[in-house]
Design a protein around this nucleic acid. Sequence first.
DNA 1: TTTATCTGATCCAATATTGAACCAATAATA
DNA 2: TATTATTGGTTCAATATTGGATCAGATAAA
Lengths: 223, 223
Amino acid sequence: MPKLVANDIAAVLKKRISSGEWLEDGRMPPERDLAVEFGVARNTVRRAVGFLEDDGTVVRHVGRGTFLTATNPDSIAATVARMEGTSPADMMEIRQLLEPAAAAFAATNASMAELNAVREAHQTACEAEDMPNFEHWDAEFHHRVFACCRNDFLKEIHNLMRTIRNQSPWFEMKKRSFSEERRQTYCSEHQTILDALLHRDPESANQAMLAHLKTVERNLLGR
Amino acid sequence: MPKLVANDIAAVLKKRISSGEWLEDGRMPPERDLAVEFGVARNTVRRAVGFLEDDGTVVRHVGRGTFLTATNPDSIAATVARMEGTSPADMMEIRQLLEPAAAAFAATNASMAELNAVREAHQTACEAEDMPNFEHWDAEFHHRVFACCRNDFLKEIHNLMRTIRNQSPWFEMKKRSFSEERRQTYCSEHQTILDALLHRDPESANQAMLAHLKTVERNLLGR
DNA sequence: TTTATCTGATCCAATATTGAACCAATAATA
DNA sequence: TATTATTGGTTCAATATTGGATCAGATAAA
């Protein structure tokens, strides 16, 4: 049904490889088997595997098979690749660890200009009409809170989480869970967080952020 | 009822692009599909996409499709590159956020086999003679605590931190701060953590880990 | 009216996928 | 050792998908 099947298959294969599949003997299934599995012509699989070969994740030998090139599992690249498969539940758990702390840092560390940027994102999100637009400014609100805390590493971790959450399965999930009522809930919770930041109250900011994330988790995971 | 014209469609498409849609493989749906989705003639979609092409947000290839030019500005690679420069102070701050939580998770979630692995790392570290050897098993102890918590994402974050801390400036720093006395302190603190884990006591595990990290921070940063 | 836009349709050109056949290198087996 | 089976490499023609282009008619605004 969809076009550019080869690209999609290449993406799926990369995902599987980075999630540790075929690691025990480092050998991928024969192209003919993959073609059957994906319900696609062998030529298409060959194209897909060709992409993997081009960027060096795999080498092919006639008569022997296709083999994963040895990759150091401790490398930063490999770690990040595994992170991309993070489940929503795991992600929400970690957000509840990090974001309240970030909000508390922000309450004590943020400059007035930075807090204004947070407020601006909040207001734009409140006025957003459609879901993608709201989604964008909602993410921007959280991002700007992190931008105020003076810990660069924390900021970068949040960047990572944000990138992961921008990928398509997440997008679909957020789309399903979106409703006008929930949008208004989020806006009022953001307001509470913003107020705490403006009052320079770390404890309140922490708690407001935690409460907000619990709401998001409930809506997103349905529990 | 405003009629959907090319300009409006172009605006909607831009919004959706900036909200992260189609970012995973950078490919937009075919014009024919968009026409159906918007309930509009393909010519109109073509005009709209033409606008996007004019201001460079998109490129089109006959037979292949329409592709976003703006690859994620905050690419993962750039994020990771910035992470490598993380300062010890920032890192210790985040460790104090994450590791106590990980220890608490581990207390409730770990299997007996996993706890045995933690104990083994602890004992080997205690018996280590030289600094590099101790350092290795110390890191392994913390790593195995993370391995017990059932959150893959948290585990991978720790992998990241561990990789960063293994780089040379960090190693020099740890070498300077090392002493036999401190090694014994660490061992006894590890023992406290391990005991809490074995007693399946999340709160104690949390606090023991936090206390340990504060000791490490004091020794490493000299404050 | 004039102008611009949208519609619905048709055809073209570039690229992708399919399905098949056959080759060459390697592995497994008799 | 000789034979057979497996596996990647190559090529080809047919079909499908996708953007490019054009045209006649309808609709709406200046």
